[in-house]
Nucleic acid binder design. Sequence first.
DNA 1: CAGTGGTCTAGACCACATG
DNA 2: ATGTGGTCTAGACCACTGG
Lengths: 257, 257
Amino acid sequence: MLDTPEIPITTFDGLVFGPRSDMPIWQQIRDHILGLIESGTLKPGSQLPGETHLAASLGVTRITLRQALQQLQNEGHLTARKGVGIFVRSPPAIFSVRDGHPFRENIETHSAPITTDTRFVRRELATAELSARLRIAEGADIIHLRRLRLLGDQPVYVNDKHFPASRFPDFEALYAERQSVTDVFRANGIAAFRRVETRISGGFASAEEAGNLRLTPGTPVFHLNARNEDSDGRTIEWTSGCWPLMSVEFVFGTPAK
Amino acid sequence: MLDTPEIPITTFDGLVFGPRSDMPIWQQIRDHILGLIESGTLKPGSQLPGETHLAASLGVTRITLRQALQQLQNEGHLTARKGVGIFVRSPPAIFSVRDGHPFRENIETHSAPITTDTRFVRRELATAELSARLRIAEGADIIHLRRLRLLGDQPVYVNDKHFPASRFPDFEALYAERQSVTDVFRANGIAAFRRVETRISGGFASAEEAGNLRLTPGTPVFHLNARNEDSDGRTIEWTSGCWPLMSVEFVFGTPAK
DNA sequence: CAGTGGTCTAGACCACATG
DNA sequence: ATGTGGTCTAGACCACTGG
């Protein structure tokens, strides 16, 4: 069951959303809804009233309201699910990802607990692109691992890792034990490895990415790609991930004092 | 004078934009206009027909058309100027920025020439935030340099650099000579320095950023912040920049073989 | 001044997910 | 079957820019 949408927005009736102000109405509405979210009146995970009701109670057209809602979706505050409803997605509070550090070390300062959800581990055949990334032959066996990182119960990062299967004959069983890729490396005699290269680019959430991150498709996102090598310079991992644009900050270099 | 908008789009009349297809009309229109841009029918810098004419010749409402145009603006293909018109912004071809390398080294592979436009060099007083960034006293003298990087005649990067004025008594004259910050460093006895930390985050173009980059305000962008230290560990530069989301890729680490 | 893009209204039909 | 968000129409007024 979902939180009952008690139409907390109806409390606006006294407010004036009018062109009298210097700001467009849809922007005033955006600011107001954002205020409700940040003040806790609209709690994370809760559902908004339907667009029709909401527009009526705000005294605007659905289209005007939708402009405000779309902005809030791009900013990562709301997420819409067709045929279902619109939900509060926060907190999209920025947290930092520091290069060269294990994921868990990056979020110690945060209140909400970080959890990992392993979506699948499976074997695939290397496509042309993947074989180039992993420096192996096209069609070779590959292990494909997909994980989701959650802040509280909010997905903030979806991550696809690819490994050359020949290096890790018993990947599935080893990973199942500890849920740690580093441990699988160690068990296969790879004590030291390093992230050779990291690439960050921008884009818009595909349907699949949006589904995993519970975002509205088309929301702006970061794409991250990285390659790991063992101490002999052989590629042992190719990783590609996706973050909501407004939910993360990347930090490279030595930490500030 | 601008290119005459010869309404090249009117050549669509034969085409069918209809709900018969499985794709929304606005997305079909987006794809079609994008095709015109990529095929060179719509050249960079040229102006599109007015939204009213365009909508009419495509047989759709202005609102439907605007949805396609907005998407193309977010992707960096078009830019709209209120009261003026809509212009082709491309090429938003991704080019890589490699950390730790001078800007010019990052774009050797590109066809269009890279140029630099120094917008201003001026003295300011350190705000609370800037004084913290530069590790100097609040209210201390600061030199503020703003530059624009252009790929062809297309702005792709706006950059604000801040320096502690006490370290560079004759900044303006020195910079005017060579247009190079590194040279100013050298002239002041700083032979070696390094980028201590780089932060990358996401956002949406402010009015000022949009003006500088010739983007529509609200377009998704990268924000970059970095700090440079001399060999004694003293901060000599704080830089903050803005890139269109779809025009750049950041690369960290050792180059791929 | 005329033309532009930005905003807004008052309707409508559809695909989709849920009960 | 109902309610949701996604799409689309046919108008309208406004602020802004440029000649």
